[in-house]
């Protein structure tokens, strides 16, 4: 749509400027507050101009929130989730789009249904699985009476237990399943012309060779776009890490530490340190988005030939 009227241009710019303002103001306030001293930040109304205490505040937040190890944890989890999601999403979409097996539509709908079941909804069962990942098998064995049988015969009681609480596996695995990712890939894979698939068959390529040699290179931009979204969203995870890590010192993530940075009820209201901490915590996803945005936009709006 191309409109050439000065009035319309004006309205467009106005809307864009407003949108930019709405997005930028919270960041600006965080930055400003993070650079002020305790006195400055306590003034009402707060000043909207930055001050000179940024680095002391950053240092204070760093030690108070134990941000160093927590950042590493966050990186491990976010990268683990991103890699896992991309692997799972691309492989499941590959199966759904390019193979005609009997259960294909069932698989498709099962994945589709999980769209309606985000982690928050199924958090209790997910937790109980995380507490013992082998629980479903135990239940199956119990119901089939195998446990009782084995105990009667050998005297050994089968008690399967694999605890994922307080582990990277537990932090990562439940977040890896992603219907959204599968859909994004499915959408992209369906635009691949059939002839390309057939050409690779005629060339004698194994399906996995087709996947790695043709499909993945062609979906590089999509993959980077998806990786960006995944990274940011798993970095921002709060509820799940909070639930599954009781050993905060070793397995806490930075987003959980935000809570630790908030001044206590009757303590010193040093919001400047909190804001400085927030700055540190949101920096990695910001950098990732800034660095990836070129591919991000390309991956979502077009395909390179």
């Amino acid at each position: 749509m191309i409109e050439r009227s000065p009035f319309f241009d004006f309205i467009t710019y106005l809307a864009m400027a407003f949108g930019a303002l709405v997005v930028v103001i919270p960041f600006w306030i965080t930055l400003v507050a993070g650079s002020q001293s305790l006195q400055e930040v306590s003034q009402v109304p707060i000043s909207l101009l930055p001050s000179s205490h940024l680095f002391e505040n950053l240092a204070a937040a760093w030690t108070r929130g134990d941000l160093g190890p927590k950042l590493i944890n966050s990186f491990i989890v976010a990268i683990g989730v991103t890699v896992g999601k991309i692997t799972l999403a691309s492989l499941s979409a590959f199966a759904i789009v390019f193979f005609s097996f009997k259960a294909r539509m069932i698989c498709f709908w099962l994945i589709f249904i999980t769209l309606m079941l985000p982690l928050e909804v199924r958090i209790v069962p997910t937790y109980s699985i995380a507490a013992n990942a082998l629980l479903p098998f135990q239940v199956i064995l119990d119901t089939l009476g195998i446990t009782g049988l084995v105990q009667a015969v050998s005297g050994v009681q089968i008690a399967l237990n694999w605890n994922l609480l307080n582990s990277y596996t537990g932090l990562i695995l439940p977040l890896v399943a992603t219907a959204t990712g599968t859909f994004l890939y499915r959408q992209f894979f369906m635009t691949i012309p059939d002839e390309l698939v057939e050409a690779s068959k005629m060339d004698g390529a194994h399906p996995l060779e087709f996947f790695f040699d043709v499909l993945l290179p062609l979906s590089r931009t999509n993959m980077l776009a998806l990786a960006t979204i995944m990274f940011v969203s798993s970095w921002n995870q709060y509820l799940w890490p909070l639930l599954i890590t009781t050993d905060r010192a070793n397995f806490g993530t930075v987003v959980m530490q935000l809570k630790a940075l908030i001044p206590a009820q009757n303590g010193t209201p040093d919001w400047n340190v909190t804001m400085a901490g927030a700055l540190i915590i949101m920096l990695p996803p910001l950098l990732v988005v800034a660095f990836m945005q070129r591919w991000f936009v390309r991956g979502l709006i077009s395909r390179d030939k």
Binding site: P193, L196, A199, K201, M202
Partner: peptide, 20 residues
């Protein structure tokens, strides 16, 4: 037999070249 086992090569209408 799978296509690759038949020893045929095919030329497609829309070329079907690998774009990358």
């Amino acid at each position: 037999l799978e296509p690759r086992e038949r020893g045929c090569a095919m030329v497609f209408q829309n070329y079907a070249l690998y774009p990358h």
